[in-house]
Amino acid sequence: GEAEGPRDALSLEDILRLYNQPINEEQAWAVCFQCCGFLSTEDARGRRAPRPRALSAAQIRLWRDGAVTLAPTGESLHDAGKLEYSRSTETEVIESLGIIIYKALDYGLKENEERELSPPLEKLIDLMANTVEADGSNDEGYEAANEGMEDEDDEKRKISAIRSYRDVMKLCAAHLPTESEAPNHYQAVCRALFAETMELYTFLTKIK
C-alpha cells in the first residue's frame, strides 16, 4: 500500500489503482478543466511551478474541495536551478495532460482493445495531445504565440488548435448545456471523485 494515513489529496494514479478501472468521461472532462484552471492561475500569478516534460498520473492531485493541481516531480527538485530553465512550455504541458487523461480513460484495457469515446471528448484529447490529422491549414508550433486578435465568439464556436490552458477550459465548458456552470460543475465532479475514492480507500483499509 502506497497510501497511508488520512489524506487531503489523492493522485490520479492512486484513484486508478484503487478502483482498478478507468475514469469515466465526465471525470475526464472535469480533471482537464480543473487542472487547466489551476495551471492558468499559476501562470497568471507569474509563479510557475517547474514542470518536467513527461508528466504522469502520479503528479495530478485531486483535493478534497475538488481542486486539481499538478505537482512537480520529486526527484528533479534537487536540481533546482537547472529545472527552472528546462520547464515545459504551455503546449507541452497540455500535450502531456491530454496523454495522461487518455491513459486514465484507457486504464486496464488490453493493447488490442480501444475504448469508444464520445466524439467531443475524443476531439478534446486529440487537440490536447496534438494528434489531430493535419488538414492543410494546421500550422501550430510550440513557441508560436500568435494570440493577438482572435475573436472570442469565433474561438468558442470552433477551436481547431489548442494553444493555452484557457482553450482547454473553453472546450470543457462548451461540453456542458450551460457554459457558465462549468466551474461549479467540474469542481463538484472532482469533489465527488475524491470523496468516493476516499470512501473506497477507507473501506479497503478496514477489511485489510
Binding site: 484507457d106 475504448r115 469508444e116 484529447i125
Partner: peptide, 24 residues
C-alpha cells in the same frame, strides 16, 4: 454512484489509442 459503462472495440490503426501510443 457507479461509473458509467463504456464500449470497447478492437484497437484501430488510425484510432486515438494508436495515435497516443505513438506519442509515448
Amino acid at each position: 454512484k457507479g461509473k458509467s459503462l463504456y464500449k470497447i472495440k478492437p484497437r484501430h490503426d488510425s484510432g486515438i489509442k494508436a495515435k497516443i501510443s505513438m506519442k509515448t
